[in-house]
Amino acid sequence: MTTIDTSAQTRADEVLVPAPRPQKRSFLDSTPAKVLLPAIVLATAIGLWEISVQAGLVNPITVPAASDTFIALFEMMQTEYFWAATWLTLQETLLGFAVGSSLGLVIGALTGTFKVFRTAIWPFVVAFQNTPRVALAPVFLTWFGFGMTSKVVMAAVICFFPVVINTVAGLASVDDNARVLFRTYGASTPQTFFKLTLPTAAPISFAGIKTALTLALLGAIVGEFVGAAEGLGVLVKEFNFQLEVASGFAVVVFLAVIGLVLYGLIELLERRLITWQH
C-alpha cells in the first residue's frame, strides 16, 4: 500500500508539544523525603506521648505510656484469645464487605442502567445514606442475635451505600460523544456495556469499594461494641472496663494496622484491575 509522504512537512502538532524542560526537583518530591518526613512526625508524636505520660502531664491510669502500649500489644500477641478475636473480627469484616459491596454493585448497576429503578430506588438511597446507620446496630442485635451474623449485617449495611452511589455515578459518567461513536459503529447493547460503560464506570465504582472495605471494619467493631462475646471490639471494651488501658490502646493500634493492611491490599487489587488510571 502506498502511503502519503508527510515526513517532509513539519509535524506541527508535535513541534508544539513543549520539550521536557529539566525540572528542579524539590527535595520534598524525592522518595527519601516521602519516607523520612512522616517517620519523623510519627517518632515525634510517640516521643511526646511517652514523655508527657512519664512526666506526669496526663493521668497514667487513663492514658497509658507509648512503651506500655507496645509492651501490652507484644504480650497480647503471644496469647491465643487475641488471635481468635482477630480472626473473628476479620471474618465479620470480610463477609460483611463481600455481601455489602456485591449487593451494592448489583443495586448500583440496576439503578444506573434502568430508569425505572432510578426513579423508584434513588430517593431511598439518598435517605438511607444520610441516616446514621450505626444506630441500627442494636436492632440487628435483636434480630440476628449475639453471634457473628449481626456484625456481618452491620458491616454489610454500612458498606453497601458508597458502592451503590459510586456505581451509579460511574455509570452516569459515560461520555455522550462516546455513546454516539459506538452507535455509529453499530455496537450492540452488550458491546457498548462491556467495551464502554463498564470500563468507564469501573474506576469510580472501585473508589466506592475501597471506602466500603474500611467501613466494613468499622461496622464489625460497632456491632461488637453493642453486643458480642468475642472479637477485637469486645477486647477494646473489656480492657477499658477493667482499666487495663494499655491493652485497650494496644488493640486500637492493632486495629489501625489491620485497617491499613486491608486498604493496602485493595489498592493493590485496584492497580491490577484498573491500569488506565494515572
Binding site: 460523544n177 454516539v180 455509529t184 459503529y185 453499530g186 464502554l196
Partner: peptide
C-alpha cells in the same frame, strides 16, 4: 453502523 460511513467528532473521544 454502516461500515461505509466514517464519523469524526470535535472531541477525539478515545478510550
Amino acid at each position: 453502523g454502516r461500515r461505509d460511513v466514517g464519523f469524526m467528532l470535535q472531541q477525539a473521544v478515545l478510550m
